[in-house]
């Protein structure tokens, strides 16, 4: 990494991401002031510090007297876990199919690309509703929907780059040197599109966190009483006029995470693009 790129490092987004998502996701058990599941009925609907509340509950409490700060800190686990697992599966699946599609072309290509079109055309929320109606809301279901929504982005992008790379001279040279199709895809095409995959995966984190929050908000995501951020926002919905903090702080966590992830993703894209790096 050049010094110049280092200077342009998006420090504020990285700091925010650590504060809101990464540190809480790993250390919530130790840094949260209260147990996120234990209610204290004598301290119900406490406002946050500065709005008549006390430092016992810095961000106030919900209807059952549970500490909002602790719940948000523990909620980061779900946001991070689901986006990591979902994106990893979606990226691997999409990349594999994109490579096959772009390298083999022909009818395989047609079938895979029509599958992508279908997943883009199908409303993911509706699909989640249908699946939740069949099996009930669960963590696995959320991951499934996430994979369903994002694999197509990877497949399409990877296919496009594969189509251009397979015509390059060094691929032709590998072929005449006796490299098999599998070797060409894994050693000549995949390493050359790794940049794209990394950037795409980073930019998908924001999409996935919003999707997970949406599903949880609708009650078809992570089941209660887990403190997923979308669920926390949904919990405060009816009290938003009188007890605004219940929805506001988890909403803020979602906002800051998605914003900083997208800013980091933009920087990463610029940094990994050799054409922009020269400038």
């Amino acid at each position: 990494m050049s010094r110049r790129a280092l200077r342009r490092l998006p420090l504020v987004p990285i700091l925010l991401l650590f504060l809101v998502l990464i540190i809480p996701a790993f250390l919530a058990t130790w840094i949260a002031p209260h147990d996120p599941y234990i209610s204290n009925l004598r301290a119900r609907l406490q406002p946050p510090v500065g709005f008549g509340g006390s430092w016992d509950y810095p961000l106030g409490t919900d209807r059952l007297g549970r500490c909002m700060l602790s719940r948000i800190l523990h909620g980061a686990k779900y946001a991070l876990g689901i986006s990591m697992v979902g994106i990893a599966i979606g990226a691997i699946l999409g990349t594999a199919l994109g490579l096959i599609s772009g390298y083999l072309r022909g009818w395989v290509d047609v079938i895979i690309m029509r599958l992508v079109d279908i997943t883009f055309a199908l409303p993911s929320i509706l699909l989640a509703l249908a699946l939740a109606a069949i099996s009930g809301p669960s963590l696995g279901l959320v991951v499934l929907v996430v994979v369903f929504v994002i694999w197509g982005f990877f497949a399409r992008q990877v296919r496009a780059e594969t189509l251009s790379l397979r015509e390059r001279d060094f691929v032709a040279r590998a072929r005449v040197a006796g490299a098999s199709g599998g070797r060409i895809v894994l050693r000549y095409i995949l390493p050359n599109i790794m940049n794209t995959i990394i950037v795409l995966a980073t930019l998908q984190i924001g999409v996935v966190i919003i999707l997970e929050a949406t599903l949880s908000f609708l009650g078809i995501g992570i089941p209660r009483p887990a403190p997923a951020w979308g669920l926390l926002v949904a919990d405060g919905r009816q009290l938003i006029v009188s007890n605004w903090w219940i929805s506001l702080f988890p909403g803020l966590a979602i906002l800051l995470t998605v914003l900083s992830v997208n800013l980091i993703g933009d920087w990463l894209r610029d940094w990994l693009d050799p054409k922009l790096r020269q400038a």
Partner: peptide, 11 residues
């Protein structure tokens, strides 16, 4: 092949 500049895998 003709062009050595593009005949090798850059990575």
């Amino acid at each position: 092949l003709q062009d050595p500049h593009t005949s090798l895998n850059p990575v």
